[in-house]
Design a protein around this nucleic acid. Sequence first.
DNA 1: GTATCTGCAAATTTTTTGCCAGTAG
DNA 2: CTACTGGCAAAAAATTTGCAGATAC
Lengths: 150, 150
Amino acid sequence: MPQQDQTTDLVLREALEANGQRFTEQRAAVYRFLASTDKHPTADEVFLAVRSEVPVISLATVYKSLETLVGCGLAMKLTYGDGSARYDGRTDPHHHARCLSCSRIFDVGGHLPPEELDDLEEGTEGFQVTGYRLELTGYCSRCGKEQAEA
Amino acid sequence: MPQQDQTTDLVLREALEANGQRFTEQRAAVYRFLASTDKHPTADEVFLAVRSEVPVISLATVYKSLETLVGCGLAMKLTYGDGSARYDGRTDPHHHARCLSCSRIFDVGGHLPPEELDDLEEGTEGFQVTGYRLELTGYCSRCGKEQAEA
DNA sequence: GTATCTGCAAATTTTTTGCCAGTAG
DNA sequence: CTACTGGCAAAAAATTTGCAGATAC
């Protein structure tokens, strides 16, 4: 097992134990895949990818594992209008850009300055804000090109 | 029919015609309901509400009508991790605050200053930004109170 | 008159659940 | 050991679709 995977496994083990959950090979495989990609796969895509490394895993287990990871703060669940949920292994503050044509998700760095959030919170009347999610919509370079050519 | 409904119907009619679609009583009922509430109902909730006014409408038609409205720019489809999509009849720029406890959605006024968006777009490398969506997460006044009491 | 829309029921898609055997701690 | 997990298959939930009759224009 590569050095990097050992580190990843350790992170996972500690997060699981902190939440009173057990470390299992299936959860590790799901987490390793999520941590290794900058894509934002659906549960089914995770299943297909993981199955090629850990042949014995079921789709239901992938769903359960993903929810466990989300519960431990090691992944984020993203939902868009296209039917299935997507999962993101990055937990540092960042945003997403979603292509309206091909539905792929891209990472965007940076974060809003605190004063902007304060301004927004002013209008919330007793709503206690703990976080936020920002998503740009538009067309990725590939789809934008196709549009221009059409 | 109240004056306001006549205006609402006219808006709908024009938007539909601009998109080559027909004005129907079912679409009007769905749109009137969406425009009259500041809730963010699911398709099923729209169905239940509309059915009490227009007894003969089916859930499938509600789904079709909602998609038509979204296509005409008269409504927005919002998805969260809780299974079903929600629809928002407000089309002016505004944000949402979602309660992590009860899952209700609240409107938040205001919009980001353009320079913030420009900053974000810098990191997108060829992604052509057409819009954005910002969502605050936290606890609404009702659920926040319950938490404090517990 | 004709293309579009609706209602119905059936199909699809996505996600969750119950239950028994297996395994981590 | 004992409780938590995984696999399987079945169920549930959400949404979409095919088609015949109805309707807007």
